[in-house]
Amino acid sequence: MERFNEYHLDPQQFPFLNRLQANWQTIRDEFTFFKKTASEEELQFAHEVMGPKSKTVKTKGNARYSAFGVLFQGLLIEDYIQTHHISYPQYPGENVPQKALELRETYFPKLTEAIAATNSSYDNILRNVYFGTFHPGLDVKLHVNYNLHTNRGYLGLIVPEGDVAMKICHDKLYWHEGEFLVLDHSYPHCPHNYTEYERTVLVVDFFKPNRPRKDLIRMEQEFVAERMQENPYSLGVFGKNDQVQAEDFIKYGLAHQLEWDKAL
């Protein structure tokens, strides 16, 4: 039986995730179709433009993490780019928001539809929705995602057998295809993929439903403003305050665990 606590949360507490979970195979099919049929230019565009970049979260070795998605801070990707006037020097003279719109509509209509239906029924509770892929051998150094206004759900889409897991505080948690793993990711964590295959999940950040919405919106606006100034290509998802602090180890008793010491 699954054991839940203050950072490993029971997905059944969040019924607004049900539509995405019910459509997980369709969402996976859209992802795999895109990866198999999109042109090299489209694949490069998705990863360069439609995915959040972090200057803080580091990995060990040369294995990569890649991400791209359709919703950021409650806005569809093309609207987010336009609203924040993000410029992409590698695409001179191109209408980047229009290109993102076309790619999203061409390859991810069912995912977009599920997001829209959920946000229509639950007052725009979904904030970020993107695909996250761990390439073989990935080992992410210990960090936090300092988003006190949201929790993060990971919907398993492609999960190989073997040691691909999330280490958070005292737990080692695993993804499963068709299921949500929900975390308060402001707790220190370090995931890895020690298999020879890629792992892909749908990352879903959502407002904490037990907090006053006006407070959460204000917090999101403050975080996004700060992060976009630090790094506009973060899409407001990552920031400098994602760095783990010494007190995190002390508070959760991690300083005495050798593998966490190495991760720091």
Rank of each mutant, 00 (worst) to 15 (best):
L148H: 06
E196A: 10
V182Q: 03
L183M: 12
E177N: 06
H135L: 10
V159Y: 07
F134G: 01
T195N: 09
D171C: 01
L126P: 01
L138A: 15
G178E: 09
I125K: 00
H149I: 01
N124V: 08
Y174C: 09
T195D: 13
N145I: 01
A165Q: 12
L142H: 11
H185F: 13
R152F: 05
M166I: 13
H192W: 10
T195L: 10
G132I: 04
N145P: 01
Y194P: 02
K172I: 13
H143C: 00
H135V: 01
T133S: 14
D163A: 06
F180Y: 14
E198F: 05
E179R: 13
V164Y: 00
L126G: 03
T133W: 00
V159T: 14
T150L: 11
N145D: 15
V159L: 07
I125A: 07
L138S: 08
F134C: 02
V144Y: 05
P160E: 12
C169V: 15
R127W: 01
E196D: 14
T195M: 14
N193T: 05
S186Y: 03
H176D: 11
G153M: 06
E198D: 12
N193A: 03
H143K: 05
N145T: 12
Y187S: 08
I158R: 02
T195W: 10
G153N: 07
Y130N: 11
D139S: 04
G132P: 02
V182S: 01
D171E: 10
I168P: 00
K141I: 08
S186C: 04
V164E: 10
D184N: 14
V182D: 02
L126F: 04
S186W: 00
V159A: 07
L183K: 06
Y187N: 05
T133Y: 04
T133F: 02
Y187A: 14
V159G: 04
D184E: 07
L148M: 12
C190T: 04
H189M: 14
V129F: 00
H176E: 15
D163N: 15
S186V: 00
E177D: 06
L183C: 08
I168N: 11
K172S: 13
M166P: 03
G153F: 03
N147P: 00
N128K: 03
V164P: 01
D163K: 05
T195C: 09
N193Q: 12
Y154H: 15
A165R: 08
H185T: 15
H170I: 11
P191S: 08
V159R: 03
L173Y: 08
F131T: 02
L173I: 13
T195F: 10
I168D: 07
Y130C: 02
T150S: 11
H176C: 07
F131S: 01
Y194Q: 07
L142D: 15
N124F: 00
I168L: 11
G178Y: 12
D139V: 00
L155A: 09
E179I: 07
G132N: 13
G162K: 08
F180G: 05
